[in-house]
């Protein structure tokens, strides 16, 4: 599904250039559940941003389902995100001014689809993560776990092929973290490809494969024993 070849990402601030990713090669197969681990500043989130097309590599080739998108026009990438990708963030990134239902519906805002179908999909997504009873509440009225479940519902409402989760349990307690991991496992079981950045070895163990990063490079890639 995903093929990265010699991907590098450098940031320049004034006179200083920082290399966040250096010559990354990575293949993610459809249906995989990949965990990315490593210390802070090792490039995990940068890698996830490039996979999610919200950041561009400085060098290298990024193929998504066979199409080289490293230098694709912005509009093409926006379409890709809209139709194929779902994002889950550590800090949820729900919009405070909108209710939970409206936040989830935002995942379909840029799609052409009848309002009845949108309503159905939103309801299904809410049911899927068990948040329907809080649909008319605003994010600040919910617990962290509930907010993250709502964020997952927003990520899956468009039925994405790839879900990118950046430390989805980072702001949650153990119980809520476990609930979120259960949902992600179920989604993976239903066919979604998941790439998850995490600091938690326990949660990484749930993934089918784990890559370890350090200083912008992939050190190891290990599959979980069946």
């Amino acid at each position: 599904m995903i093929q990265l070849e010699n991907i590098s990402r450098r940031f320049r601030a004034d006179e200083i250039e920082t290399t966040a990713l250096a010559d990354i090669d990575l293949v993610v197969e459809a249906g995989e559940f990949l965990a990315v681990m490593g210390p802070s500043g090792c490039g995990k989130s940068t890698l996830l941003n490039i996979l999610g097309t919200i950041d561009r590599p400085s060098d290298g080739v990024y193929r998504f389902e066979g199409e080289d998108i490293a230098r694709a026009p912005e509009a093409r990438l926006a379409r890709l995100r809209r139709d194929r990708l779902g994002f889950v963030f550590q800090s949820f990134n729900l919009i405070d001014e909108l209710t939970i239902r409206e936040n989830i519906a935002l995942g379909l805002a840029y799609r052409t689809m009848g309002s009845a179908e949108k309503r159905e999909r939103v309801t299904a997504a809410m049911d899927r993560v068990g948040i329907a009873h809080r649909k008319d509440h605003h994010p600040h009225q919910l617990s962290g776990g509930q907010q993250q479940r709502a964020a997952i519902a927003r990520a899956i409402v468009g039925d994405p092929k790839l879900i990118l989760a950046d430390e989805p349990t980072g702001n949650l307690d153990t119980e809520n973290g476990a609930q979120v991991m259960n949902i992600l496992t179920e989604l993976n079981g239903e066919g979604a490809t998941i790439v998850m950045v995490t600091h938690s070895p326990a949660h990484a163990d749930i993934a089918k494969r784990t890559v370890h990063m350090l200083d912008g490079r992939i050190l190891t890639s290990a599959r979980r024993a069946a």
């Binding site: 919200i54 926006a78 379409r79 890709l80 995100r81 994002f87 919009i95 935002l106 805002a109």
Partner: peptide
């Protein structure tokens, strides 16, 4: 900015 960034993540083009 966060809202707008999120909309971008969800597939909004710059023109939109």
């Amino acid at each position: 900015a966060r809202e707008v960034a999120l909309r971008k993540v969800l597939g909004a083009t710059r023109r939109a």
